[in-house]
Computed example of a mutant assay.
Amino acid sequence: MRLSFIKMHGLGNDFVILDGRGAELPRLSEAQIRALADRHRGIGFDQLIVLAPSDAADFAMRIHNADGGEVGACGNASRAVAVLHGKPAQVETAGGLIAVRPGDGQAEVAMGQPRFEWPDIPLAYAMDTRDMPVGWDMLERPGAVNVGNPHVVFFVDNDVADVPLDRLGPEIEHDPMFPDRINVNVAQIVSREAIVLRVWERGAGLTLACGTGACATAAVAYRRGLVDAQVSVTLPGGTLIIRHDEGGGLHMAGPAQESYRGTFDLDDFS
């Protein structure tokens, strides 16, 4: 079976999008997704995005990391889908409904309310998620939040590039404390309006940008009184603007663009 795809990225965080809004698509297995994600033998991507009809919204978006696992949210992919759709929309995700609004190669996504209760992360047992009394090597006392995906956020005084996140990221991701695994953020507060961030994404590893990671980091920093309601978050791939509205909801704005389109034979990846 031959399928069409659209390759897009947001700040270098790249996706293959399968557009099933108008025609039913086959459900890919985790093994097929991993094969497609291979950057040497497949197409290559951080996330696979599958669009489908929805009774609750304008359309639905299913999100799979490169390891094949399905996740509830992806901020950069939400912006890419907004640009692809071309007009404001409500989108159903496994993490809940989100609102997207595209504009001139950019998009804003209303990500909803951050959730800080320990069962919502989830954690394996009750703990103060504002200032967790745990650590891994030089990374200590993170905050935890769920913004459609679970995240822990560590703040460091030194350059975030000096943290061996390629080693510590998978160790923290798979710690038994996090029954659904966890996304790992290492952030430096530059000012009340600016944060520098690196992210280890569960199921994808180090990526150039992570939209939910930027939202999570801004939410934890704001909760601790470290930043203002609107803050720029700079990742290796570029900068996102995260703001809290008056009701505490998170909004993310930044670029997204199409790279190319193509087709592949699904049988080649079975």
Rank of each mutant, 00 (worst) to 15 (best):
G262L: 08
V190K: 15
A89N: 10
Q257F: 10
P122D: 03
E92F: 03
P142G: 07
R198C: 08
G95M: 06
A35I: 09
D128A: 06
M61L: 12
I33S: 02
V91K: 06
A80K: 01
S4F: 05
P170W: 04
G72H: 10
L197N: 04
L266Q: 09
D67W: 01
G248Y: 12
V231W: 01
C210W: 00
F178V: 06
R21N: 11
R261F: 00
V160F: 04
W118Q: 14
G112P: 13
A221Q: 09
A99H: 14
V196H: 13
A216L: 07
A80I: 00
A35F: 10
S4E: 15
M177C: 08
A31M: 13
T129M: 05
I98F: 08
P88T: 09
E193W: 11
E258Y: 01
G75Q: 00
R130A: 11
G10M: 03
P236A: 05
A221W: 03
W136S: 02
E258L: 09
R39E: 04
L11M: 02
R130N: 09
H64P: 04
G205R: 10
H9Y: 00
P142M: 07
G68W: 12
L51I: 07
G143Q: 07
P179L: 11
I172K: 06
N146T: 04
P88N: 10
F178Q: 04
